[in-house]
């Protein structure tokens, strides 16, 4: 009955997590950084759902829905701050965030 073994889901979620982390660290555009952040949070969600199915336990699903909400909240606040940055700098390049240096 179980078509795809759980390892495949876990490998997928690990790959997505690493791609997301790479994006947050390397990319220069603020919007893409926020998207990479979403990718990281959602890769954890895939792991939750996969574990939940393998364990036949609903907690993972509940956690996934809560984590989705949190991800939406983070992106909403993030976009608001991106708009505020754009008002000041007229660019979304992350290199403009250099005012705070000791």
């Amino acid at each position: 009955m179980m078509g795809v073994p759980i390892e495949h889901y876990l490998v997928l979620s690990a790959i997505l997590f690493v791609i997301g982390a790479y994006g947050v660290i390397i990319r220069k555009n603020l919007i893409i950084v926020l998207m990479s952040l979403e990718l990281m949070l959602n890769s954890a969600n895939i792991a939750f759902v996969a574990f939940s199915r393998a364990l036949s336990d609903m907690t993972g699903h509940v956690f996934m829905i809560m984590a989705l909400t949190v991800a939406a909240v983070e992106v909403a606040v993030g976009l608001a701050l991106v708009v505020a940055i754009y008002m000041h700098k007229e660019t979304l390049d992350i290199d403009v965030l250099k005012m705070l240096k000791g």
């Binding site: 982390a21 603020l30 950084v33 954890a44 574990f51 364990l55 949190v70 701050l81 505020a84 965030l97």
Partner: peptide, 23 residues
């Protein structure tokens, strides 16, 4: 924005850790 990006990064790491522990 710096706090949001870095804080979100750490939350994602935390969430992934929780997922593994749950599994």
């Amino acid at each position: 924005i710096k706090y949001l990006v870095l804080g979100g990064f750490s939350s994602a790491i935390l969430l992934y850790g929780i997922a593994l522990i749950y599994g």
